[in-house]
Nucleic acid binder design. Structure first.
Lengths: 128, 128
DNA sequence: CATAGCGTATTACTTCGCTAATACGGTATG
DNA sequence: CATACCGTATTAGCGAAGTAATACGCTATG
């Protein structure tokens, strides 16, 4: 499942878990119907309290990202293709938000910031 | 000087002060060389502790927005957006690198990613 | 039923950001 | 010197957010 957390990063653990699950779904690594590790297993794996994972899972369920059927394991909810695209954009937005804020604070002009971003995007494309 | 704060808005008072000073400078109401009210006066006016104002002023000075000459009143600095830390530019690049990696991993193409980034940059510009 | 794995309600603890109280050192001005 | 502002170092108090400890109820499976 590849979930990793850094308890001393300032970002709450439960939010790190939520973000990574969302990202894995948006990227296709997790597909609708796929099972997630039980609360206790994951908490043990990450070395945190079960309640922390429970909280993350509940919020994800409330958001319709995960689905729970009583007695059955927690699974990824099915999402129609349109929503999946929107979700991808949301994920990207989240990553870009920090950079945008930094750019603004630095007084870096939009054109320049975009240029740097393009450069990095093409760099990544070539690597593969 | 027209500074007003709302202590029960969730937004820290020292940050409200910082934001308003920045805004007044950006809007031209405050110009380079203009004096700011002494820590104690402003704190009395706003009904908060002097330390709160002191904190706001110090952060603004650290950011190069205000200038202090010993024994002289605090004044608005002549600001030049181009004399900023290279270290922070690297931070921007690092931040953008993460986002680029995310875009790649999500399968979002360059055109779309750039569009979203532009959107966020302009959104930030409007906020202040 | 028994038991084993599961999720979580409840409670309490820890940490952290913000502000206030207090008191001290510096500088100008007479 | 005196005195009158000025900024702030230090300390403490407060509330909110995150996490942990504990114990309970549910479901499946034998």
């Amino acid at each position: 499942m590849l979930i990793v957390v850094n308890p001393s990063s300032g970002v709450p653990v439960f939010r790190q878990v939520m973000d990574q699950v969302r990202f894995h779904i948006a990227s296709g690594l997790l597909e609708p119907g796929d099972e997630l590790p039980p609360t206790r297993s994951l908490s043990a794996e990450l070395g945190v309290n079960p309640m922390t994972i429970s909280k993350a899972y509940n919020l994800l369920e409330r958001d319709g990202v995960l689905e729970r059927r009583p007695g059955r394991p927690l699974v990824v909810a099915k999402l129609d293709p349109t929503d999946l695209d929107l979700e991808k954009l949301d994920q990207l937005r989240a990553s870009l938000a920090d950079a945008a804020r930094a750019a603004h604070q630095l007084g870096v002009d939009t054109r320049e910031a975009v240029r740097v971003f393009r450069e990095l995007l093409e760099c990544d494309d070539k690597e593969k």
